[in-house]
Design a protein around this nucleic acid. Structure first.
Lengths: 219, 219, 219, 219
DNA sequence: AATGAATGAGGTTTCATTCAT
DNA sequence: GATGAATGAAACCTCATTCAT
């Protein structure tokens, strides 16, 4: 008399399971289409639920977008933060974190995309949230730079506040990441190395043959 | 006695005048809202005409977008190209062009925006056009780097092909430009100087106090 | 106390009910205005729903049109086919089917209209579908003619392939049907009789006083 | 000093030349797209003039349409009328006029199309005009039938008023004409012969081998 | 006589959002 | 908790029609 269980197995999935599914689907769609181009229909379909479910969980399109920003920002911060936690040498710590950044970008393209500048074009109050999340990343990089400066004995970084340099660094990183997408034969290590070279040694040193290389200083 | 001219003079403006008006309005709206977020109604209103006029002149939203890309890309290229045409010293040429770039960005925020990465999210054949325009910019920067490397005696730039470095450089520039928008108290010279510092001397030099400065070398 | 049921009962009608409602409304509007002249607004209003519902059910105007063609074509075929299924005498079978055709036209003017030549003017892939549906009707008539010819001992119908004669027959039928619309005092039997006369006996016989009449042969 | 004449040769074309050009273009577009589907832009372009010219000549889209109907109707009437003017034998006269009809259709597909049933679907006051034009054709055919009946000694045509038979005849003719478009290997003579067979001899005679043939009776 | 420029109204289609079950 | 059904608003685009030159 009992019906087989699989006939209608889509009922009563706990929130803890449904929510991440939706977030993932939303991140993927937002990354691919942008905020305005994304449709709640596609997001719901991608998560395997119906639209009213999405609304019941996240309230509105904008709120869902904010949740995506939070989600992606937090995960990126965690990955980068954890990467150099044990390391005491600031230069090596920077390297480890740059590497973690590129690995994150490589493995979570979608997440990084929604943090990118494209997202800021929304215009509504979501722009603020995106800007805040991005600023957190930039600040983290800024602190790292400051640390390195202090380690070398400089009280402040000359030539610009650390945050400005960090801004440039993050932009360079994102740009390189984009280039990476079209050249998947490169490794995260190679990409991180390039960024380290550009920023750490400067073009000036590069053209005179002074190369920064992880192998030269760390086993 | 005479009314201000702008109040309601919307009759019979020749095409050569209307078209740039529309292009400007379109660039402004696309920059502010992104491709998907922009509405033809708003663009038309911004140009002081009705929608059908815009369609009669540009055919479709996508075609209008392409025209904007072309317009902005060409103007940027011209500005940067002309800046260093007379200069023979590659380093100073790079500086002049960086400066021209920032001046262009400062004076044509909208134009630069539509060339940014956001534009690539359209998905249609417009993405190709945007990518092409951006690649032209990157290639120009790449050639500049190569020139500088050769001037210093290096056959090739170590640490990565010039195009990759250019990619990072453009990204850093765009990121700095964004930061600039929130800090308008800075001058284009200061911004260009910062980018020059980051890229030319390298963080490594910066933290040891070696500063590149235009004032030091050029009167 | 109770209000009439039809006033505003627009909530939650299941798909199996709404779809035919929409089809009927669409057939009516397409018949009256033609494909280009019909507006989705009017169709939706006719079905008592809003436009998005129509799109959600049928996808696009052209798809809705195709569905109408299918619907009408199938119903006409069924009516005509069923009419003579039990009859063994070919002549009487033809008569029964002609009668069924006119009855269908009389009771479903709209359906017949959308199958008419007007439909072919769409230009898109819908024209193909309309042509196919019409061809099915013509083929059915053609087979009927062939049957009659064989029953009278003729191997082939002289004077033209059956399909061509069927083509003329269908055209004559449609034209008579149109005339009928302006002269509703006539019965379907009278109309079918006229067509039978024209086609069966030929003008040549008619002018010599040889009349075919159902009453003369069938009680 | 004098400019070459060809540079701007589109000024001052007399009305007697322009008007037929426009009518022809309009007939072509209306025939291909139907009333609603036709655009004044396409018509103007097809005539090689600008839209305001069309409006100055014909007033409105509907008026232009009416003019097309008139034009086509008149030309068809003239062609058919002239065909049998000298002929005294009614049967041969019918044959000559049927032939003229098919020749007209073959050579002026567009004109015939706008007289077809498709045109009646406009809904506005134009429908009346179309109906009137069509009725003129049907009446002409009707008179022809009556003439033939009288020639054979019948006072009235039994089995239906001549106009009804004419209606069927015209419908059959139009349908055959449509079929003809897909089978251009047939000649106008063959088509007219088929229609003559269907209508004159009747299926009843055909299936018994009694064929009407122009060669048998007329050289 | 002729036209480039311009528009208001209306077309199809999509989308975020909400009921009623 | 979950969903099919439904909608209002707004998007892109077209078209018949009219001025001003």
């Amino acid at each position: 008399m009992s019906v087989t269980k699989e006939s209608k197995a889509r009922t009563k999935v706990p929130r803890a399971v449904r929510e991440p599914q939706m977030l993932d689907a939303a991140v993927a769609v937002f990354a691919e289409r942008g905020y305005h181009g994304a449709s709640m229909d596609e997001i719901a379909a991608g998560a395997g639920v119906t639209k009213p479910m999405v609304y019941s969980y996240f309230g509105s399109k904008e709120d869902l977008y904010l949740a995506c920003i939070d989600h992606a920002g937090t995960r990126l911060m965690e990955a980068v933060d954890e990467a150099g936690r044990e390391e005491r040498d600031p230069e090596r710590q920077l390297w480890l974190r740059l590497l973690a950044f590129f690995r994150f970008v490589g493995e979570h393209r979608h997440e990084w995309r929604v943090l990118g500048r494209e997202a800021a074009a929304t215009g509504g109050p979501a722009s603020e949230q995106v800007a805040r999340a991005r600023r957190r990343v930039v600040q983290l990089v800024g602190r790292q730079i400051e640390l390195n400066a202090r380690a070398r004995g400089a009280e402040v970084v000359p030539g610009g506040e650390p945050e400005i340099l960090a801004q440039a660094m993050v932009g360079a990183g994102e740009s390189l990441a984009d280039w990476w997408l079209d050249h998947p034969e490169e490794t995260a290590e190679a990409m991180a190395g390039r960024l380290m070279n550009v920023l750490w040694m400067g073009l000036g040193d590069l053209v005179e043959g002074r190369l920064w290389s992880p192998a030269a200083e760390y086993s």
